[in-house]
Amino acid sequence: MNAVPHRPAMPPALATQRLALVPWREDHCARLAVLAAEEGMTRRQLASGRPDLGCAWRLLAAIVGHWALTGFGLYAVEHRGVLAGYVGLIEPIGWPEPELCYAVCVDCRGKGFVAESVRAVVTAAAGAGFAPLASFVAVDNAPSRRVLERLGAAYEGDSVLGGAVRAVYRHPHPAEERMTG
């Protein structure tokens, strides 16, 4: 197993018109537990089907640990001081490249927060020196694929990742987006 390749670092915080992309704090834990349950992010929560603060704290620790180990990671997305979701880059062991990930709490959907926060990360990543970013999605997850297409990401083909077949999408470089948009 090779060491993680060297990547640029991301700024610790970003701001958009309506959202603050900030470092995680322990007081995000309760809303993260709800979001993790909504997203089915941990096995124990999947089994119980309800928010679990202990699981959420470990997830929170893994998210902030990713920042400590790699210099980039997921931001807490806040709207008016309340956790609305997460967005950012992850590159766990075995991942072929950094992945742009995002999720929005159920009670914050339908407001365009994904597009707004993803655009901020894409722009900041380009500025930091990252190559155009990929997102990986289960091939049969049609709603997520439509979201990626609306964000302007291009389908590149399928790839086996973490034991499952995923569709690979490539987000446009901000400069390309300006030229075509």
């Binding site: 197993m1 620790a61 893994a62 998210i63 902030v64 640990g65 400590a68 180990l69 062991i93 075995g94």
Partner: peptide, 18 residues
Amino acid sequence: DDGAAWRAFAAIAGHWTL
């Protein structure tokens, strides 16, 4: 499951931050 092991490893590092 190396992916789960990596998340647990990251959580050990993140414990310090929190």
